[in-house]
Design a protein around this nucleic acid. Structure first.
Lengths: 334, 334
DNA sequence: ATGAAAGCGCTAACAA
DNA sequence: TTGTTAGCGCTTTCAT
């Protein structure tokens, strides 16, 4: 296990100065073809690879070609697809991606982001957890660009890519109402999460628009994992005057709910999931495109990195109601 | 957008030498409490954060506390769960993770790995694509530790974490045979992928052990996406003497196959997937634990990074046949 | 076309 | 306890 070869080693072997090697490595002009060939040869012989760390240090104001990506949980299908899209764009642009997870914990988010900025990333794409993100301000003002995705971050004036959660849910709940439902349950993850709060608001707006009462007994929040949702559904259906329809606030909740939800109860879910079309009835969803969110966020970030100085903007991507059956069931007393 | 403050800036503000600030930042002894307090203050005032890049450069032989993780595709649920586990262990150990994807392309894999090693990662965890990995040898011999996960890499003598694919499939196909099936189809992803080749081998072994002929017309490989599998199933069932059971070589193929597979045809799938229990019939699977694979790989890597010099070893994790219904259906002519 | 000197931000090694 | 000097591997700047 020897040391990795340096510029100097290559220079010595090729019988030139380190500077000449540097020029060859970086494809800069001003090296004779004969010399260049000799240097190339030495590079290959030694298996030399430029040290990006050292290079970055000297090139002041230069880019690290590294971005940081912070998600809540990579194992979540939505975030996995999102992260995949970000990585793809980054790669096309010759960047590498540092990935980290917050697990819905602001302290952890701060630590991960600190570890990223300590490594001088050029920018960050984050799915922010609840809480103030003012701690990012110093990084932002010293040139680290930040883009928020999926959720807004309060007190942070940066580019943001979201979908219109409120509208998506409003339409979906109106859809259930149009099919005759009056008692519609809302199942959500932690309501501190921005998207969940928005979706809950959309739910309430749809009820209000139809002149229906909002019964708190039909709302269950804080469902983090699938089994939580399964239990919540069971409890909801056991109470007097149970819901005839259920709105699931995200894919994980939907999948959990489906473990205990009888096929006769109508359902619409926010976000798509595998095999939703294969269930009986197939599950009607509010579709959002994680790849589009990731791609858009990445493009915004790279625009900033490459000098875009315009005002921070918010891109709102559309959602689509995809009708498959479960949301069109009539209300049915059980 | 000012420059980020350096050690020197802090030193000037606190009226001490840079070295003293360095000591405070790194929690080293030999600084008077009074001085330390003044330095801390200056650090906070300026919003100073240590530059990990510069620090790493000087501390020769020291660690970057960064590892590289290469998967085929982060959006794949198996790899997402795997990556999540790796990230978790890395974080616990104070490391950050560079993530990259190969998309089943050796050239891309090489490029991503080169980008990682150029940044002096302490180690790599890779799900290798098909092909020689000898290009990693220089990195390995200059101290970059490598662990392979999920698949073996030919010609690379490094720690490897896999499951016993062959045995898992053998048992599953034997299970189908025990339930009376004689014509069992095999649906696989690209057979160049190590796991798929192993699974196919297990399939053939089970048939041979039961004295059944291996009909090539029942084998479909190269199914990369769900729709490919759906089409393959349709074609298989249309041919004369169609299969009465199907073995799906991975979760993606399974989900695709289920789009067109009639409930009367038996099925066992390799790898679990969401809602497998909710289908009719629920899907019998060969379970493998992506989190265990990721955790094990990460532990092996960190052991190496921290000086483990023992011979490269292979950890083989078990699989489990989880009986749910679809694999216990009797053969039925259609 | 090539090289020498200096320095990026930090820390190892050695004073004082 | 504190500071000085040198240098990590590279690139900028300025010479030749």
């Amino acid at each position: 296990m020897s040391d990795r070869p340096t510029l100097k080693d290559v220079a010595a072997r090729a019988g030139v100065s380190p500077m000449t090697v540097s020029r060859v490595v970086n494809g800069e002009p001003g090296v004779g073809p004969e010399t260049a060939a000799r240097v190339e040869r030495a590079i290959r012989d030694l298996g030399y690879q430029r040290d990006a760390v050292a290079s970055q240090l000297r090139r002041k104001g230069q880019l690290a070609h590294t971005i940081g990506l912070l998600v809540d949980n990579v194992a979540d299908p939505f975030m996995a697809a999102f992260a995949s899209a970000v990585e793809d764009v980054a790669r096309q642009r010759g960047n590498v991606v540092l990935i980290g997870t917050s697990r819905d914990d602001l302290k952890r988010e701060r630590e991960v982001i600190a570890a990223f900025t300590a490594r001088r990333v050029d920018g960050l794409i984050i799915i922010p957890v609840e809480g103030s993100h003012r701690f990012l301000q110093p990084a932002v003002s010293t040139g680290t660009h930040v883009v928020c995705a999926d959720r807004r971050a309060p007190g942070l004036d940066v580019d943001t890519v979201i979908v219109d959660n409120r509208e998506g849910v409003r339409d979906a709940v109106a859809h259930l109402i149009a099919h005759g439902h009056r008692r519609i349950a809302f199942l959500g993850d932690r309501k501190e999460i921005w998207t969940i709060a928005e979706r809950h608001a959309g739910y309430l707006e749809a009820l209000a628009a139809a002149g229906l009462p909002a019964d708190p007994a039909l709302v269950r929040n804080g469902l983090r994992h699938a089994p939580d949702a399964a239990t919540a559904v069971k409890e909801l259906l056991e109470q007097p005057d149970p819901p005839t329809a259920v709105f699931a606030g995200n894919d994980i909740v939907a999948v959990g709910a489906l473990e205990t939800l009888p096929p006769s109860v109508a359902m619409v879910a926010f976000g798509d999931f595998v095999l939703a079309t294969r269930l009986d009835p197939p599950v009607t969803i509010v579709y959002q495109d994680p790849v589009a969110i990731g791609t858009t966020a990445a493009h915004l970030l790279f625009a900033r990195i490459h000098g875009d100085l315009s005002q921070a903007r918010t891109v709102v991507l559309p959602t689509h109601l995809i009708v498959r059956g479960s949301g069109e069931l009539p209300p049915r007393s059980r």
